[in-house]
Amino acid sequence: MRNLLLGAVVAALSLIGAPTFAADIQAGKEYVELSNPVPTAEPNKVEVVEIFWYGCPHCYAFEPTINPWIEKLPEDVNFVRIPAMFGGIWDVHGQMFITLEAMNVEHKVHTAIFDAIHNQRKKLATPEEMADFVAEQGVDRDAFLKTYNSFGVKSRVEKDKKLAEAYQIEGVPVMIVNGKYRFDLGTAGGPENALKVADQLIEKERAAE
């Protein structure tokens, strides 16, 4: 948790005064190259992962910047969101996200959940509280609870926890390109620069194919 808090402080500082973005990014500066690359979900595409937590204010602040970028990604790029789960409420919110993805309704309520937690001060700390909230957004309450407690969702929770360990994350939000390169808002120099780093690493991986 100490490392997560340090990551949040770095991200906060980057939002206050972002340094000039380097035209040519370098490993060890804007991003870290993982010593053990992690297999991607779709090997025929360049994968971009964002690891986040619904309770993270920096993840919430990143949403207006990253979402338009995601919508414009080309067909050969596969964007994946993975919830960070470090115990307690992190796990609860992570399982909620995975449940909504399994139901194919996450895209309809993702922004509403962020807004509920950060603007409406809702905790969404129990399955019942989550079910009531997503029902207000048009999601079937009983189907949500059934899916939340399903074997498939619980298996995905364990899988995503192992992925986060493999990526060696220390804070959120964090991005990983093609299972090889990890960076955050602090190392990249702010939200907009983080996406510029992602763009350059995507091009790097295209060129390597």
Score class of each variant (00 low, 15 high):
residue 31 Y to F: 15
residue 114 F to E: 03
residue 36 N to T: 15
residue 128 E to S: 12
residue 183 F to W: 12
residue 206 R to H: 06
residue 209 E to V: 15
residue 138 G to P: 11
residue 20 T to L: 09
residue 7 G to D: 04
residue 176 I to G: 08
residue 169 I to Y: 03
residue 6 L to M: 13
residue 188 A to T: 10
residue 190 G to P: 06
residue 198 A to V: 10
residue 65 T to H: 10
residue 69 W to R: 04
residue 5 L to K: 13
residue 78 N to P: 03
residue 43 P to S: 00
residue 95 Q to K: 14
residue 183 F to L: 08
residue 51 I to C: 05
residue 49 V to F: 02
residue 142 D to F: 00
residue 70 I to R: 15
residue 39 P to V: 07
residue 13 L to H: 05
residue 175 M to W: 11
residue 75 E to H: 10
residue 74 P to V: 11
residue 69 W to Y: 14
residue 57 P to F: 00
residue 157 V to I: 12
residue 99 T to S: 14
residue 34 L to M: 09
residue 74 P to I: 11
residue 188 A to Q: 09
residue 42 E to V: 05
residue 138 G to L: 04
residue 146 K to F: 04
residue 2 R to Y: 13
residue 64 P to R: 01
residue 140 D to L: 08
residue 180 K to G: 07
residue 205 E to I: 05
residue 131 A to Y: 06
residue 86 F to I: 12
residue 150 S to F: 09
residue 60 Y to K: 04
residue 19 P to E: 13
residue 159 K to R: 13
residue 59 C to L: 03
residue 137 Q to H: 08
residue 164 A to Y: 01
residue 124 L to F: 05
residue 55 G to T: 03
residue 44 N to F: 05
residue 197 V to A: 08
residue 137 Q to D: 03
residue 53 W to Y: 06
residue 55 G to W: 05
residue 117 I to V: 10
residue 131 A to K: 05
residue 9 V to C: 04
residue 164 A to I: 12
residue 91 D to C: 13
residue 58 H to M: 00
residue 179 G to Q: 07
residue 201 L to E: 11
residue 85 M to D: 09
residue 108 K to Q: 13
residue 173 P to N: 12
residue 56 C to F: 08
residue 101 E to C: 12
residue 70 I to E: 11
residue 122 K to F: 04
residue 29 K to D: 01
residue 93 H to F: 07
residue 73 L to G: 02
residue 90 W to H: 15
residue 186 G to P: 12
residue 89 I to P: 09
residue 179 G to K: 05
residue 49 V to A: 01
residue 11 A to L: 01
residue 32 V to E: 12
residue 52 F to L: 08
residue 78 N to V: 01
residue 186 G to T: 13
residue 44 N to I: 08
residue 202 I to V: 15
residue 18 A to G: 14
residue 31 Y to I: 05
residue 62 F to N: 02
residue 130 M to P: 00
residue 166 A to L: 10
residue 25 I to W: 07
residue 136 E to T: 15
residue 35 S to Y: 00
residue 2 R to N: 13
residue 104 N to G: 08
residue 133 F to C: 07
residue 133 F to I: 04
residue 57 P to N: 00
residue 43 P to Y: 00
residue 71 E to W: 03
residue 159 K to G: 06
residue 56 C to R: 03
residue 123 K to L: 14
residue 33 E to Y: 06
residue 164 A to S: 12
residue 173 P to E: 11
residue 143 A to H: 13
residue 47 E to S: 09
residue 31 Y to G: 06
residue 209 E to P: 01
residue 97 F to T: 10
residue 85 M to V: 07
residue 35 S to P: 00
residue 158 E to P: 02
residue 79 F to A: 04
residue 70 I to N: 10
residue 59 C to R: 09
residue 36 N to Y: 01
residue 52 F to I: 01
residue 108 K to D: 08
residue 55 G to V: 02
residue 64 P to A: 00
residue 36 N to P: 11
residue 98 I to W: 01
residue 111 T to H: 13
residue 66 I to F: 09
residue 125 A to C: 06
residue 136 E to I: 12
residue 8 A to D: 10
residue 195 L to Y: 11
residue 117 I to Q: 02
residue 42 E to G: 00
residue 198 A to I: 07
residue 170 E to F: 07
residue 42 E to I: 01
residue 197 V to K: 04
residue 141 R to D: 06
residue 138 G to E: 07
residue 120 Q to R: 15
residue 152 G to K: 14
residue 105 V to M: 02
